[in-house]
Amino acid sequence: MNGLTGAYVPGSSPLHRLPAGAKLAGLAVACTVLVLLPSPAALGGAAAAVAGLYVVSRVGPAAAWAQVRPVRYFVVALFGLQWVFVGLEGAAVTTLRVLLAVALAGLVTLTTRTSAMMAALERCLRPARLVGLDPFRLSLLLSLTVRSVPVIAALAVRVREAQRARGVERSLRAFAVPLVVSSLRHADALGEALSARGLDD
């Protein structure tokens, strides 16, 4: 869950000290470069560089694994499909690109506080004011998305347990309906809490 929940790992590495805006810009450039790299060998070099960045960040192997763990099944399925349609080399290239992009994005998350990310995003979104959008609200949306992942995951666990207790663990409807209802309730409560904290001014 680490990667999805934006679990910042406190530290003082050069990556931690880098401004959030620079890291986001670097991530955009790095992902573009990954798309342009043509061969498995070149992407292997990029993988070594990403691994080097993780070492420099000193976030630890568990946090590193947590970044790519959520996409492990997707990556295996992607590799299989690509192998069938474009061959082994094409499959390796596409899969490595996705994996490295996820790992890099995870590294930014692990070394950047959400508040710093929000501040950087707000600066980037300033032109949105011209079309009547509030950059603060847009960056808040990012924060709420990150914060809601563990909450919804906890709701899903609760619904699963209730299903098991009633002996209907195989029913998709018995899982989906209460999860959607409780998620909507949570959204309502969150909206009210934001109002109470003065965010509807």
Binding site: Y8, S115, S143, L144, R147, A154, A189, A196
Partner: peptide
């Protein structure tokens, strides 16, 4: 204002 469920009012990840 303090609500019953703290999960509904904690906005930031840390």
């Amino acid at each position: 204002f303090l609500f019953t469920d703290p999960d509904a009012q904690i906005v930031m990840p840390t």
